[in-house]
Amino acid sequence: MAEAEVCVDCPPDNQQTAAPMLVPEPTTVAHNPLDPSTFVPPSSPISPSVTIEFCDRCRWLHRATWVSTELFLTFPTPALRVITIMPLNSEETAGRFRVWLFLDGKPPVLVWDRKVEGGFPELKVLKQRIRDHIQPGKSLGHSDK
């Protein structure tokens, strides 16, 4: 895995590695910035869709739009109907880069979290994780090698 980039505007957090997981229904559990089970996903009305949350203060807009473009090129409609990029600008969202997947009748899936995973996603890995949920068995060509 590539070394995590350091944001110059946001204080760094301790980082650890974890696999993607389903996110449980929101509860009153205290928020822990490194525990995905305490993350609250944004809402998404159209399925299947992806939401990319990112820290605007870290200037990650270009990365978020690049990732969204690559996902649309790999999963054209109807595989993915909507990709939302959501800039965040607060102390509690400092350094955030999360990718959520929304599917009808299922809880949102946290596909990637920069702080938990220890860096930004390689597109190959991100595409494989999304593919495994929306089009299992689909070949991603060079991204599967």
Rank of each mutant, 00 (worst) to 15 (best):
49 S>I: 07
122 E>C: 13
50 V>K: 08
128 Q>T: 13
6 V>R: 01
91 E>S: 12
26 P>H: 14
144 D>N: 06
27 T>I: 06
68 S>W: 01
78 P>F: 01
9 D>W: 10
117 E>F: 09
45 P>F: 09
112 W>N: 04
119 G>I: 12
13 D>Q: 15
27 T>S: 11
64 A>H: 07
69 T>F: 00
53 E>R: 00
67 V>Y: 09
120 F>Y: 07
72 F>V: 08
6 V>Y: 05
40 V>R: 03
100 W>Q: 02
2 A>I: 04
99 V>Y: 01
93 T>Q: 04
35 D>E: 07
21 M>W: 05
14 N>E: 12
141 G>Y: 02
86 M>P: 06
47 S>M: 10
19 A>H: 12
130 I>C: 04
92 E>K: 08
132 D>K: 04
11 P>D: 13
88 L>T: 11
139 S>R: 05
56 D>T: 02
69 T>L: 07
20 P>Q: 04
66 W>Y: 12
16 Q>D: 09
102 F>C: 08
13 D>S: 13
3 E>Q: 05
28 T>H: 15
140 L>A: 14
36 P>C: 13
17 T>Y: 15
74 T>N: 03
126 L>N: 06
35 D>I: 08
37 S>D: 11
98 R>V: 02
31 H>D: 02
6 V>L: 10
103 L>Y: 01
70 E>N: 14
33 P>N: 04
84 T>K: 03
10 C>P: 15
23 V>L: 14
43 S>C: 08
82 V>Q: 10
12 P>C: 13
46 I>G: 13
79 A>L: 15
133 H>N: 14
100 W>T: 10
71 L>E: 03
52 I>Y: 04
54 F>E: 02
43 S>D: 15
6 V>Q: 07
8 V>G: 15
2 A>R: 02
90 S>D: 11
68 S>G: 03
33 P>E: 09
133 H>K: 11
31 H>C: 04
25 E>G: 08
130 I>M: 02
75 F>V: 05
34 L>A: 11
23 V>D: 06
106 K>M: 01
62 H>D: 15
47 S>K: 11
91 E>G: 13
122 E>Y: 00
62 H>F: 10
72 F>M: 12
20 P>E: 01
103 L>D: 12
73 L>D: 13
38 T>Y: 00
78 P>Y: 00
111 V>W: 00
72 F>Y: 09
117 E>C: 08
138 K>A: 13
55 C>E: 05
144 D>G: 08
124 K>F: 01
24 P>E: 03
11 P>M: 05
121 P>Y: 03
94 A>Y: 04
101 L>D: 05
43 S>H: 09
124 K>N: 07
116 V>E: 15
13 D>C: 14
46 I>Y: 03
92 E>M: 08
80 L>V: 10
134 I>P: 10
17 T>G: 11
78 P>H: 08
94 A>E: 14
113 D>T: 00
91 E>F: 14
63 R>M: 01
31 H>L: 11
27 T>R: 02
7 C>T: 03
88 L>Q: 05
106 K>V: 00
17 T>A: 15
105 G>A: 00
129 R>Y: 04
71 L>Y: 09
25 E>L: 09
135 Q>W: 12
47 S>N: 14
85 I>D: 01
75 F>T: 03
58 C>P: 09
84 T>L: 03
135 Q>E: 15
108 P>C: 06
8 V>H: 11
136 P>N: 03
52 I>T: 00
99 V>H: 05
67 V>M: 02
43 S>R: 01
145 K>M: 15
39 F>L: 12
80 L>F: 12
88 L>F: 06
56 D>K: 13
